[in-house]
Amino acid sequence: MRWLWRGLVLVAGVGGWQLWTSAAGSAFFPRPSAIVARMHHLWFSGPAAHLFLTPDATGNILPSLGRVLAGLAIATAIGVPLGITLGRSTVVTSYLNPLLQFARALPVVTMAPVFIVLFKIGTEMEVATIAFGTVWPILLNTIDGAATVDPVQLDTGLAFRLSPRQRLVWVIVPAALPKAFAGFRLSLSLSLILMVFAELVGSSNGIGYEMSNASNAFDMTFLWATIVLLGILGYLLNALLGGAERLVLGWHTDKGLH
């Protein structure tokens, strides 16, 4: 029953938006029906063989998604192992902590010019921006998770003579995972922001590139279409992560913590 009410609220919200924009007739706020029609025309009216994706969609949405995933993959590949290592060595972490906090506090956008110089404008620079921005929540949360493993759980591993590798795989990593996931969730929403930003700065394709084109051409419906598309992508990625979390952390989340 509840999903029905939720659906109803969504429909009412969009309906309200439609009524308001129709009444206002402003050139800056196109009607949602027009936005959806444009989205369909731009991206989702392709042949069935291409999952209805138009060349415009495969040429822009897919590269953007690829950059997001590549950036997150790099951030995870660095953040999780490094976070576990640092979390388990309090001495090293206490020395590195000021440095980590400083690096994290740097607004990523200010690093973009550096990455432009380093990598030139293009996919590498965009992926680097996303990876640099998203590594911090993952890293710092994983450090916290690995540092706060219950001492009884560690003692149990020792008392049953698990090898260091077994303690890592069966005790420390699972214990740190809930916090690592919390960090990843933050990084996911950050990654979309950084993707758009990096593509606005300079790109020859992607959703941010399309936005910049739409904006330059004063094509408001097109611009709103990209905004709605980004919202939908963010929602889908989050839902995907939620599913992965339930799969991996079922023992944790089903306890009713959320």
Binding site: Q153, T156, F160, L162, Q166, V171, W251
Partner: peptide
């Protein structure tokens, strides 16, 4: 072998009961 007072913390919540019992046998 050790039985700790705090079973709630010494059993691993991410493992099934069987896997908890079987874990020390990996050695």
């Amino acid at each position: 072998a050790v039985v700790f007072q705090d079973y709630g913390r010494s059993l691993y919540p991410w493992l099934t009961v069987r896997d908890n019992v079987a874990l020390p046998l990996r050695r």
